[in-house]
Simulated assay, not measured.
Amino acid sequence: MKSKIAGIGVAVLASVVLVPLPAEAAADPVAAVQRLMAQKRTAKVIEWGSVMLGGRGRKINSMMHLFDYHFERKGWLQFGSGGVVGSNLTRKVMFKRDGTLAIAKEDAANGDLQARSLLAQTSPHRSVTANGRHYSAGKLYSPALPKGRPWAYRGKAVSGGAFGDQIVNIFEPKTLQRLLSDTYEKKYISGPVFIDPLGRSHKNLYSWRGKLTFDDLYAVSPTFRALAQTKPDESYGPALVWWDLLTDRAGIPVRFNVMWDTAYQGHYATRERASGNTVTDFVGWRTGLPVKPPHSTKAAPLPNPAAGLPEFDDVMEVIRGRRPRS
């Protein structure tokens, strides 16, 4: 498991000193999260990861190519007494593996709507959620919007519009308590742990690692239930979600990693396998910085993307549908 976690972005240096985590000295992430919510803090986040789609790989010039895409989101999450209540985020999809862009273009040319949706997202898209209302801007929506109104009003938001790529909401205290109650590793790391996206070295952190199934996550998390829309079926409900939380000495989250795979031992799915990972870095905390919605004169109702494209802009759509084919 350590090799898998290292592969999703936790670069642990050779000089790290791992010390068992005494119960009396342990940070309390649940209490820390509740304080952040009570203080109505705003977090600056940088989120990144990748998704592998098992059904889209193919041979190119006699070589087999897997198909995956990478994503990056950055911006602000606003907290309130109920958890994440708002967000202002910019997101972009990237094709980094050799051959994947060519595969996506070929599929799109052949009429594959999901491939067209992914290609549209290689240009930055904005999302803003404020006062429970969700807005999006970018190539997925602009062709269907009136001139001078770049923002699509999408309707009500789930958990401040902050989840989709990151499928585990650690700002639900009961969900976080469930994670922490069932860990396979608890450590205090005194040496350097990782370099964040801003180039800062982090050390003196508490680390928790664990795993649960999609069924477990559905049972405990209101956010995941809303994202999943229906209870996970037998094709992926028992599959595993691994997680890795790093906090400072006060228990405030510094980095949260999730790795998931819809395949599991003994099951041969009729739908294609999908897997992925998401790393959320919390790189700053502010007070008095509420997220504001676009001006009403800049937005128009548009619940779905333009041109009949699917809303294929988050990881949960991949998990629900497994192989993204039209």
Rank of each mutant, 00 (worst) to 15 (best):
T270I: 08
T270W: 11
T270L: 12
T270K: 12
R271F: 03
R271W: 05
E272H: 09
E272N: 10
E272P: 05
E272F: 05
E272W: 08
E272C: 09
R273W: 05
A274S: 10
A274R: 02
A274V: 10
A274T: 10
A274L: 01
S275D: 07
S275Q: 12
G276P: 02
G276N: 03
G276A: 02
G276K: 02
G276L: 02
G276C: 05
G276R: 00
G276V: 00
N277K: 01
N277D: 13
N277E: 10
T278E: 13
T278N: 13
T278W: 05
V279I: 07
V279E: 06
T280E: 02
T280G: 01
T280H: 00
T280N: 03
T280V: 07
T280M: 04
D281P: 00
D281Q: 03
D281K: 00
F282P: 00
F282Y: 11
F282T: 04
F282S: 01
F282L: 04
V283R: 01
V283P: 04
V283D: 03
G284F: 01
G284E: 06
G284D: 10
G284W: 03
G284N: 04
W285T: 06
R286Q: 12
T287I: 03
T287A: 09
T287V: 04
T287M: 05
T287G: 07
T287Q: 06
G288P: 07
G288Q: 06
G288T: 05
G288C: 05
L289C: 07
L289H: 10
L289F: 03
L289K: 11
P290M: 02
P290S: 06
P290N: 03
P290Q: 04
K292N: 15
K292L: 15
K292C: 13
P293C: 07
P293S: 11
P293W: 05
P293V: 08
P293M: 08
P294H: 14
P294G: 15
H295D: 15
H295E: 15
H295R: 14
H295F: 11
H295K: 15
H295T: 14
H295Q: 14
H295G: 15
H295L: 14
H295M: 14
S296R: 13
S296C: 09
S296W: 11
T297G: 05
T297A: 09
T297N: 12
T297V: 10
K298L: 15
K298E: 15
K298Y: 13
K298R: 14
K298S: 14
A299Y: 10
A299Q: 14
A299I: 11
A299V: 15
A299P: 13
A299L: 11
